[in-house]
Design a protein around this nucleic acid. Structure first.
Length: 425
RNA sequence: GGAGAGUUGGCAGAGUGGUUGAAUGCGGCGGUCUUGAAAACCGUUGACGGUGCAAGCUGUCCCGGGGUUCGAAUCCCUGACUCUCCGCCA
């Protein structure tokens, strides 16, 4: 959620920011409602002040045994008036909240302006020693590799659940589990994150808090009976851990890392990049979440990216980092870096991580604040999160880049103590 | 799933429908005393909104949402959560 006061004082800046994010601009409507609300509020508050005062007089009169009937009769009309005005204020507020809930975050000044993903800007890249982009010996894709070694079974996944629900088999399952454990341990021990194992279903409030709802509701799975949502990312439960809380500033920054399965309907994207792991409804992800003081959030964003990168370096996977342009930024993000890993069989980069600074946008929605030790004032914190990383796309790169000429797959060195084997096939 | 009890400030814990935004204790902050600290004593200590240059004035909030009333932390309805007991269960 944006700060209403900021919108009031800087309507043009807000409008331009929304335009740059390709979003609908409803700022004028919002400001009209804001004005209406404040006008009505003033009237109703005067009446309430009067009611409070007279109520005390009634109490005094009754205490001294005097008659108060005439004042009570008079106050009855005042009360009715208050009730009517309160109702109309509430209606205005509901309209405003609806508009605000649909209004996305503004891009940070450092974000390149652009219409679509085509205008994202490469930030940096890293390639393993001796790596080349050419396909040396007709490297086959992860789906074929999975079939060949019987480690991935997309067909049976489709049978038991539907397309986009992969099954990991044998060494494939072990490798997946090894990858998750390796990433968790790495962030816990080398990067000082605290591990969280969150619920995989969350309530509506939590989905609103991080900004998946209302705009992305169609992309979420939903258990209607209980109004619970299977999480699209661990960001949702972990960020909402501190919803409605006032944190102490000595405990900041808070760094959490957690594994979760992630569930996405991917509505409307059928047929697009849908092969194998490229687009799935359920995948595994290790997610990092930070709660930080506002003044440090951009430095923390850089840390977050580096923490995700360290995993890829340890796994020896080629990657590049993009700064997303304004048009490609997600609803809640002010700035975002995507990390993409290389797939030799697809001959393209695949998004494996997204590291974002939400500034106070989620904090305002979820009401997460901290008390500053200097002046004891409360202020919204900034939240960040980044995949560290999603295993599905990463697995594509690991399998394809580590295949040998005779079709076997070498397990990355750092995973071997988790897998117990060093080669598949 | 059934039956009962509960939810009040950072925490603990009072609260006959009428100066209760809320006693009291602990904690926090400031001070007196002290060479310093502890103890003791005194004072202070919520959030959000409106208005104002400001001091201030003012409204709302006692789990959430409705209602009764001139007036609700207090009464009624409803939902969530917690605890105890029973049933079922990995």
């Amino acid at each position: 959620m944006l700060d209403l006061k900021f919108i009031r004082e800087n309507p043009e800046i807000v409008k331009q920011g929304l335009l740059n994010k390709n979003e609908k601009v409803t700022i004028d409507e919002l400001l009209a409602l804001d004005l209406e609300r404040r006008n009505k509020l003033q009237t109703v508050e005067e009446l309430k002040a009067k009611r409070n005062k007279v109520s005390q007089e009634v109490a005094q009169l009754k205490k001294t045994g005097q008659n108060a009937d005439h004042i009570i009769a008079e106050m009855k009309t005042v009360s009715d008036e208050i009730k009517n005005l309160d109702d109309s204020v509430r209606i205005v507020e509901e309209k405003m909240n609806e508009l605000l809930a649909w209004t996305c975050n503004l891009p940070h000044d450092s974000v390149p302006v652009g219409k679509s993903a085509a205008e994202n800007v490469e930030y940096r890249n890293w390639l393993p020693e001796g790596f080349t982009f050419e396909n040396k010996f007709d490297q086959i894709d992860h789906v074929e590799l999975g079939k060949k070694h019987n480690i991935l079974d997309f067909e049976r996944g489709a049978k038991i659940s539907g397309s986009g629900f992969p099954v990991y088999v044998g060494k494939g399952a072990t490798l997946e589990r090894a990858l998750i454990n390796f990433m968790l341990d790495f962030h816990i021990n080398k990067h000082n994150y605290k591990e969280i194992m969150p619920p995989f279903l969350v309530n509506r409030e939590s989905m609103k808090g991080t900004g998946q709802i209302p705009k992305m509701e169609e992309d979420m799975y939903h258990c209607e009976k209980d109004d619970l949502f299977p999480i699209p990312t661990a960001e949702v439960p972990i960020t909402n851990l501190h919803r409605g809380e006032i944190l102490n500033d000595e405990e900041l920054p808070i760094n959490y890392v957690g594994y979760s399965a992630c569930f996405r309907r991917e509505a409307g994207s059928y047929g697009k990049d849908s092969k194998g792991f490229l687009r799935v409804h359920q995948f595994n992800k290790v997610e990092m979440v930070k709660f930080v003081k506002p003044e440090t959030s951009y430095a923390e964003l850089e840390n977050l990216v580096t923490d995700a990168e360290d995993i890829l370096k340890a796994l020896n996977v080629p990657y590049r980092i993009l700064t997303l342009c304004t048009g490609d930024l997600s609803f809640s993000a002010a700035k975002c870096y995507d990390i993409e890993t290389w797939s030799p069989a697809e001959n393209k980069w695949l998004e494996a991580s997204s590291c974002s600074n939400f500034e106070a946008f989620q904090a305002r929605r979820a009401n997460i604040r901290y008390r500053k030790s200097e002046d004891k004032k409360v202020e919204f914190i900034h939240t960040l999160n980044g995949s560290g990383l999603a295993t599905s796309r990463l697995m594509v790169s690991i399998l394809e880049n580590n295949q040998t000429e005779d079709g076997r797959i070498i397990v990355p060195e750092v995973l071997r103590k988790y897998t117990g084997f060093d080669i598949i096939g």
